[in-house]
Design a protein around this nucleic acid. Structure first.
Lengths: 135, 135
DNA sequence: AAAACAATTTGGAATTGGTCTATACTGCAG
DNA sequence: CTGCAGTATAGACCAATTCCAAATTGTTTT
């Protein structure tokens, strides 16, 4: 995704295209990937641009609320942000922490139970935890 | 699950049945439930027994490694420990933080993708995120 | 039963990921 | 300009968890 696409996306979601927001988006949205807030901050620093920690967190939260990125909770200690917002699933390697996408079409879920009273469904996520084969 | 069952379980897993480990097990394993480490510490304190924070964390980690409890990562800021280790799934209310079990038989997964090379499957978990219906 | 050793527990310090706060900056409408 | 709303910032703060070195407990050896 290139700069002009990002600006379009922001406009569609009524997000003011500030310098910092565009920079964060350019890192996360260039290609399908999973990054933690820390990783995004590191990359920003590497490329010399200084966006503050607070702003990165604010921005990721904002993006999440607008559904332009997706939060993934596979790791107990940190959130990952996923640039592909289409429904899909994940492999999580518990040893290495690696996350890999699984296309939604690769998993078929036959039946789902009744939701608890007074709730509506927000998402259905399948997480397949894997571990390196020993040997 | 009662005390003697817990001792049997420990023996089966070569876990030394220390005072503290038994106390933690007695809280978590009495019935199917989801507790965070903090909640377990609170309950220990309520019942007057003083097991240190570090020991609770050590113990839960040990139990997890032996597969006698299951870690659930639904909430990015804390882990929950699940006393039912049989495969099953969860509803997670993103507003209230409530976790509810879904019996494995209530979800049928039709197909699963090929695992990444060099990995074996550890678990398949379905997390249905829900939110209170507004009104 | 004392000495020696291993395993476990402990309190408190340290770390980590993330949030909060008060201040400063950046447009833009009047 | 001036004022105001929305953002950005550094740094203090916070909660959950881990780390560490010392104290305790349990088990063997003698």
């Amino acid at each position: 995704m290139m700069r002009s696409d990002i600006l379009d996306l922001f406009e569609k979601h009524d997000i003011l295209p500030t310098q910092q927001r565009v920079e964060v988006a350019q890192i996360l949205l260039v290609r399908p990937q999973h990054l933690s807030a820390e990783q995004i901050i590191d990359r920003l620093m590497q490329q010399g641009s200084s966006v503050s920690k607070a702003t990165v967190y604010n921005t990721l939260k904002l993006f999440g609320e607008h559904g332009i990125v997706k939060e993934i909770m596979a790791d107990p200690v940190r959130k990952f942000y996923d640039s592909s917002t289409l429904p899909h699933h994940h492999f999580y390697n518990v040893d290495t922490g690696e996350l890999h996408d699984i296309a939604e079409s690769d998993v078929s879920i036959g039946s789902l139970p009744l939701l608890p009273a007074g709730t509506r469904q927000e998402s259905v996520e399948v997480l397949i935890r894997v571990r390196p084969t020993e040997n």
